[in-house]
Simulated assay, not measured.
Amino acid sequence: MEEHRPVPAARQAKPDGSGHATPSARAITVQLRTACVLCGEIRQSICPELRKRREAVNMSIRELGRKLGWSHASLSFIESGARPPSPTDVARYLGGCGPGPAPANRA
Rank of each mutant, 00 (worst) to 15 (best):
L75D: 05
T29M: 07
R83Y: 05
V90N: 05
F77R: 15
R11Q: 12
E41H: 10
G98P: 03
G98R: 03
L50N: 04
S71T: 15
P85T: 10
P48L: 03
A21Q: 05
G17H: 05
E3T: 12
P48C: 07
E49D: 08
D16L: 01
D16A: 03
G69H: 02
L64S: 04
V37K: 08
K52T: 06
P87W: 01
P84I: 11
D16H: 00
G40Y: 00
I46M: 07
R51N: 07
G40K: 00
P48K: 08
L75V: 00
T22W: 02
L94Q: 05
F77T: 08
L38Q: 14
E79Y: 09
G65K: 06
S60A: 04
G98Q: 06
A21K: 04
T34Q: 14
S74R: 11
R11E: 15
Q31V: 13
A73E: 11
C47W: 00
H4S: 13
G17Y: 04
L50F: 05
C47E: 00
S45K: 04
R92W: 09
P85E: 04
P87K: 00
R43M: 01
V90K: 06
A73K: 08
E2M: 09
R11F: 12
K52A: 11
P48S: 10
S24K: 09
A27G: 15
R51L: 12
E55T: 12
R83I: 15
C36P: 00
A9S: 11
V90S: 06
A82E: 04
R51K: 14
I61P: 01
S86L: 10
S71E: 13
Q44H: 09
A35E: 14
R92H: 11
P99W: 03
I61Y: 01
G95N: 10
H4Y: 11
G98F: 03
T29Q: 13
G96R: 00
C36R: 14
A82H: 01
S45T: 09
A91N: 11
P48I: 02
H4D: 14
A10Y: 06
R106P: 02
Q31S: 15
L94P: 04
S74K: 10
A104C: 01
Q31T: 12
E63I: 05
W70D: 07
A56D: 15
N58Y: 08
V90T: 13
P103F: 06
N105T: 13
R51M: 08
V7L: 13
G19Y: 06
P15Q: 02
V7P: 00
G98S: 07
R51S: 11
Y93C: 08
A35M: 12
G95H: 09
Q12V: 12
E41M: 13
A25F: 06
R5G: 07
R11M: 09
A27P: 01
L64K: 02
C39Y: 00
S80Q: 12
